[in-house]
Design a protein around this nucleic acid. Structure first.
Length: 473
DNA sequence: ATGTAC
C-alpha cells in the first residue's frame, strides 16, 4: 500500500513509515507461516481491512508481532496530554475582542510555548491573533508569523521642503501613481531589479518555483491594509541617531510585505506542519508547528528569512522609484518587519520569538507604528519590556470587520471629507477608512511602557488598493 | 493577504 492509500484509511502522516514497515513485516510473517499451504496470505482488500482495524482499535494489536509498533504510536497519539499552559500579559485589554483572547489562550497550549504577550491592537487572525507574540523553544509556527511573511514598514525622510506638499500636490500624487502598483497579483509593467534576486532562491522548492513571480512583483504593494503615502514628519526634539534636528520634514511611508511568494511559503509549510499534528493536538489547527531540527523546519526558516530580505527589497524599490520621480534624496529613515520570527535570547535562553502584527521593541530599537489613512503614524524607540518579549503594537488595530465597514461607509463621502481636512487619498476602499480602526492615540497611551514616541507623521497624500468596481478610484 | 485548484 502506498502513502496516499494509507492516509485515506486514516493512518496519520507521521505514522506512515511505521505503518509501511508493519505491513512489510506482516506480509513476510504470513509467508513464513503459510509456507507450502499457499493459504492465508494477507494482501489487497484483506490487508487494507487489517490496517483499518489497527487504526480503529490499536489496543487489540499490542500482542501482534508486526503491528505492535504501529499500535503503540497510535495509542500514544490518542492519549490526552495534561500540562499547564503558559500565561501571557495583555496591553489595552478593554479594546480587544474575545476571539483574539481565545486564540492567544490556545497558543499558550502549544507544547513548546515558553513566553507570550498580546499587544493593544490585537484582533482575530488565522492561528495566532494579529498582535500576538509567541516565544517557542526549538519550533516555528508558520501561522504565528503570518501569511504575509515580513509584512513591514519603511519610512524615508526626504530633502524636500514641507511647503511643496501644498504647493505642488500633483507631483506627489504622480510619484505615488508611477512609483508602485496595487492589487492582488499586481506586478510592474517593467521588471524591477534588486540584489535580492541574486540570492539563493533554491533554499526550498516553493521559493525556487515562485522566484519568477516574486521578481515580477518586486516593487509592488498588494492590497488590504497596504499603503504608500507622503506626510509631514515632526520631531519636537533633535534625534542624534537619525541625524535630524527638531522640525518638520516630508517623509515617505510604506506598508507591505512579501506578496505572493511569502503567502505561498506560509501555506506550503503550514500544510506540512498540520499534516504532522498529532491527533491529541488537532484543536491547535493552524497553530501547527515545525520542529527546528526537522528538514521542513530548517527549510521554512531559510525561506522565511529570504522572504524577509525580499520584502525589504520590495520597499527599497518602491522608495527608490518614488523618490527618484520626485527628484529628491533620502536623508534618513526607519524600517522594521512586523510579521516575522527571530531567534532571540530571553531570560538567558534561546527562543524563536514570533511577532505577528507586533513591532520589535528591544531597548533602543527604532520602529514605525502607523495609525490609519488619516491618523498619525509614530516613529518609536523600544523600551525593552521583558513582559512583552520586547514588542509593541504594529498599528491601531481594526475595530470593525471589512464587511461591516462596506455597509456602514460610502467611500466617496469619506474621501471628500478627508479632502476637506487636507488629506488627498488617491485610491482606497470603505474597508480601510479611519473609522474601522481604533483610536491610535489611545493605543499609544496603552503601550507607554513598551515604546517612547520619537516623532509623529501626519499623512497628506495616500495611496491604497482601490476597489476596481468603483469608477472614482 | 494572496491567488488558484485533488
Amino acid at each position: 500500500m502506498n502513502s496516499r492509500q494509507l492516509l485515506k484509511i486514516g493512518v496519520p502522516e507521521y505514522c506512515l513509515k511505521t505503518a509501511k514497515t508493519a505491513i512489510q513485516n506482516k506480509v513476510a510473517e504470513e509467508k513464513v507461516n503459510g509456507k507450502g499451504s499457499g493459504a492465508g496470505k494477507v494482501r489487497g482488500k484483506a490487508l487494507k481491512e487489517l490496517v483499518q482495524a489497527v487504526v480503529a482499535q490499536p489496543e487489540a494489536f499490542l500482542e501482534d508481532l508486526s503491528f505492535r509498533q504501529l499500535a503503540l504510536e497510535l495509542i500514544e497519539d490518542n492519549r490526552e496530554e495534561v500540562f499547564e499552559p503558559i500565561d501571557y500579559q495583555v496591553w489595552g485589554k478593554e479594546g480587544i475582542d474575545e476571539g483574539a483572547f481565545s486564540q492567544m489562550d490556545l497558543a499558550c497550549h502549544v507544547p513548546s510555548a515558553r513566553g507570550a504577550a498580546l499587544m493593544p491592537d490585537a484582533h482575530l487572525g488565522y492561528g495566532l491573533p494579529i498582535g500576538g507574540v509567541l516565544a517557542l523553544e526549538d519550533a516555528v509556527i508558520p501561522y504565528a508569523v503570518g501569511v504575509d511573511i515580513a509584512c513591514r514598514m519603511k519610512l524615508s525622510v526626504l530633502d524636500i521642503s514641507v511647503d511643496a506638499l501644498d504647493q505642488k500636490p500633483h507631483q506627489f500624487v504622480d510619484a505615488l501613481n508611477r512609483g508602485t502598483v496595487f492589487g492582488v497579483g499586481a506586478a510592474h509593467e517593467k521588471r524591477q531589479y534588486h540584489g535580492v534576486m541574486d540570492q539563493d532562491w533554491t533554499v526550498s522548492k516553493v521559493t525556487r518555483e515562485k522566484k519568477d513571480r516574486a521578481w515580477k512583483q518586486l516593487g509592488s504593494s498588494g492590497s488590504g491594509n497596504h499603503f504608500v503615502e507622503f506626510g509631514v514628519l515632526t520631531f519636537t526634539e533633535a534625534d542624534a541617531e537619525l541625524g535630524l534636528e527638531a522640525g518638520e520634514y516630508v517623509a515617505l511611508l510604506s506598508h507591505s510585505g512579501s506578496r505572493g511568494a511569502g503567502a505561498a511559503v506560509c501555506s506550503t509549510y503550514s500544510s506540512i506542519a498540520q499534516a504532522r499534528l498529532h491527533k491529541r493536538h488537532h484543536k491547535l489547527g493552524r497553530l501547527a508547528w515545525l520542529e527546528m531540527d526537522s528538514e521542513a523546519g530548517q527549510e521554512y526558516w531559510a525561506a522565511m528569512n529570504l522572504m524577509g530580505e525580499y520584502a525589504a527589497a520590495n520597499h527599497a524599490v518602491i522608495h527608490q522609484n518614488v523618490s527618484e520621480i520626485l527628484g529628491s534624496k533620502v536623508v534618513s529613515g526607519v524600517e522594521n518587519h512586523h510579521n516575522f520570527a527571530w531567534k532571540e535570547e530571553h531570560d538567558g535562553k534561546e527562543f524563536y520569538v514570533h511577532r505577528k502584527g507586533a513591532t520589535p521593541a528591544a531597548a533602543g530599537e527604532l520602529g514605525v507604528i502607523p495609525g490609519s489613512m488619516a491618523d498619525p503614524a509614530f516613529v518609536v524607540r523600544g523600551k525593552g519590556n521583558p513582559a512583552s518579549l520586547n514588542s509593541a503594537s504594529h498599528g491601531a488595530g481594526r475595530c470593525m470587520s471589512r464587511n461591516k465597514a462596506k455597509d456602514k461607509y460610502r467611500w466617496k463621502a469619506v474621501r471628500n471629507d478627508l479632502a476637506k481636512r487636507g488629506i488627498t487619498v488617491i485610491s482606497a476602499g470603505a474597508d480601510e477608512v479611519p473609522g474601522v480602526y481604533k483610536n491610535i492615540m489611545e493605543v499609544m497611551a496603552e503601550q507607554q511602557d513598551l515604546v517612547d514616541i520619537v516623532a509623529r507623521f501626519n499623512p497628506k497624500v495616500v495611496k491604497m488598493c482601490g476597489d476596481g468596481s468603483r469608477a472614482e478610484d
